[in-house]
């Protein structure tokens, strides 16, 4: 398992691995928002938590098509499926690698982009905490979507259509934590729900992802 994680991380770092692309996308989306809604500081400050969450979600979504498709094309998935490592573990590790290369940098970059959007000071902490709790769920749910569409030639658009409805609960609770935190409201309920969704997704979805992947491999 560690070998697979190290390989995926190494592949992401090497040329053409796409490391940092998600981060750059996150940055550019965040920059586009003031350009489209206007520079009023009060308006930007109130929508900042939602914009940061939406940007992070889209950045995650766009990097999903590489998650399994490359291994599918070059036959690695066939070989992994015949290896001693259970496919459930393999998809979990791939989701973890996706989180480390995409989700974690987004969490770390969010406060910097929060400055650009005039995020209220108490919001910084809660944006980071909510993203830290929520992005693992985004990676795991996305892995399920990637496994569903891995056999399709141009599955990228379809995958977005399938994954986005599944992202909704995570987005709602995550953005709610960030928004409430920014205006100093009580955040306990959405925070617990967000943590619950993440924990349950990480625990259960790999089984569905592996089952779907096996169907696609036959």
């Amino acid at each position: 398992m560690i070998a697979l994680l190290m390989r995926d991380l190494r592949l992401a770092m090497r040329a053409g691995g796409g490391f940092g692309l998600g981060l750059a996308f996150f940055l550019i989306v965040t920059v586009m928002v003031p350009l489209s809604v206007g520079p009023q500081a009060a308006l930007l400050g109130s929508i900042a938590p939602g914009v940061l969450w939406l940007g992070a979600l889209l950045a995650c979504l766009l990097s999903l098509d590489r998650l399994l498709a490359l291994d599918w094309e070059d036959g690695s998935l066939d070989l992994l499926a015949t290896a001693p490592l259970p496919l459930e573990a393999a998809v979990s590790v791939k989701a973890l690698a996706h989180w480390i290369t995409t989700g974690l940098p987004l969490v770390l970059a969010a406060p910097v982009l929060g400055v650009l959007l005039n995020l209220p000071v108490p919001g910084f902490k809660w944006v980071m905490i909510s993203l830290l709790l929520g992005t693992p769920a985004l990676s795991v749910i996305g892995t399920f979507g990637a496994a569903l569409t891995v056999g399709l030639k141009r599955g990228g658009l379809l995958m977005s259509l399938l994954v986005m409805p599944l992202y909704m609960p995570t987005l709602i609770f995550g953005a709610e934590v960030a928004r409430r935190g920014a205006i100093g409201m009580d955040i306990q309920t959405p925070l617990l729900m967000l943590a619950g969704i993440s924990a349950a997704s990480i625990a259960l979805l790999p089984f569905a992802s592996a089952a779907v992947l096996r169907i696609n491999l036959r």
């Binding site: 390989r7 190494r10 592949l11 090497r14 040329a15 053409g16 691995g17 291994d71 094309e73 070059d74 036959g75 690695s76 998935l77 066939d78 070989l79 992994l80």
Partner: peptide
């Protein structure tokens, strides 16, 4: 071992 070798070009 099937038709594709599962080789990663950047490794």
């Amino acid at each position: 071992a099937g038709h594709s070798d599962g080789i990663k070009p950047t490794l």
